[in-house]
């Protein structure tokens, strides 16, 4: 029971963090058709910016300032690196962002060193939210979840109830039509790209003080957020939300489960499969990292448009 509840809570909190990062990615993908390889690099930069700003001003101002910095960087990248290659097609845009990953990774190592930083949690947030089965449950996990939920609500409200949101939603679906209506679509792209970068940056600031802030942050999350976007469905914010939670909870449970394929065989009456060795004795917990990919395969093969994506 306690394993179940704690795994669920951790999974939710991790899933919500995933959502914070993938929200921007899926919006940009839906609108520009570009899967930004460097998106999780923005997340990492958010953590580092947050760290640097936080040392000067404390955590709370950094929570605002660092994402703004990342947004500015995102805007520069869109304007000067992506827009010029747009005419060569999506593959080249994808490749540019792919190259950026190396540049950002190496610059971070150059500026901050090739090791995780001491990035302490603000004292006012480091307390126990509640006691659960004799263990203190850190409030910060709750805080991560709260930030993500507030962000989700804010994006939804912005896109549903404001004019800007309307234009953005329209531009995601029919960029040419929106352009024909006289809106400055390149400007909308720039704004969405910068906004998406800011969201990843915000996630970085929040996560940076809880998970280690280190140069491998981007790589650790990188592929998982792609999985979230594909599973959730191209350009679908709601889809990304569901997929993030799904993957967060799955991964969280899998880490604690020591079942093997042999156990599964035993369950259906085939005993002794563990004697075959090999794949049959690999514990589920050790291949937890593979689960999101298996999920992605299933989705791509059975429902190519994603869980909540529209068929094209």
């Amino acid at each position: 029971m306690d394993f179940f509840v704690v795994s669920l809570l951790n999974g939710l909190s991790y899933g919500l963090l995933l959502f914070m990062v993938s929200a921007g990615l899926t919006l940009v993908f839906g609108m520009m058709g570009v899967l930004n390889f460097a998106h999780s690099s923005f997340y990492m930069l958010g953590a580092y910016f947050g760290y640097s700003v936080g040392r000067l001003t404390g955590f709370w101002p950094a929570l605002i300032v660092a994402p703004l910095g990342i947004a500015f960087l995102g805007a520069l990248i869109e304007r000067y690196l992506l827009r010029p290659v747009h005419r060569h097609g999506h593959a080249h845009e994808l490749l540019v962002t792919f190259g950026l990953v190396f540049i950002i990774d190496e610059l971070v190592k150059l500026l901050y060193g090739n090791y995780p930083l001491k990035n302490p949690m603000p004292v006012e947030l480091s307390f126990s939210a509640f006691r659960l089965f004799g263990l203190d449950y850190p409030f910060y996990r709750v805080f991560i979840a709260l930030v993500a939920i507030v962000m989700f609500g804010a994006i939804l409200a912005l896109s549903r109830f404001t004019r800007v949101g309307l234009i953005v939603r329209a531009a995601v679906r029919r960029p040419h039509m929106v352009e024909a209506l006289g809106h400055n679509v390149p400007m909308v792209f720039l704004g969405v790209f910068a906004g998406g970068a800011a969201l990843a940056g915000l996630a970085g600031v929040v996560a940076g003080v809880f998970y280690p802030t280190g140069p491998s942050m981007a790589q650790e999350l990188g592929v998982i957020v792609f999985v979230v976007v594909v599973v959730g469905g191209l350009g679908s914010l709601e889809g990304a939300f569901v997929a993030s939670l799904l993957i967060g909870i799955f991964s969280s449970f899998a880490v604690g489960v020591n079942w093997t394929l042999a156990d599964a065989f035993a369950l259906v009456g085939v005993a002794g499969a563990d004697l075959w060795g090999g794949a049959f004795t690999v514990k589920l917990s050790t291949v937890a990292g593979a689960i999101p990919f298996v999920l992605m395969f299933l989705v791509l093969l059975l429902r190519p448009a994603g869980l909540l994506g529209e068929r094209q």
């Binding site: 999506h90 990919f293 395969f297 791509l300």
Partner: peptide, 11 residues
């Protein structure tokens, strides 16, 4: 396209 790239990455 992008989906192909993602599948190969996932493999």
């Amino acid at each position: 396209g992008t989906y192909f790239a993602m599948i190969t990455l996932a493999v």
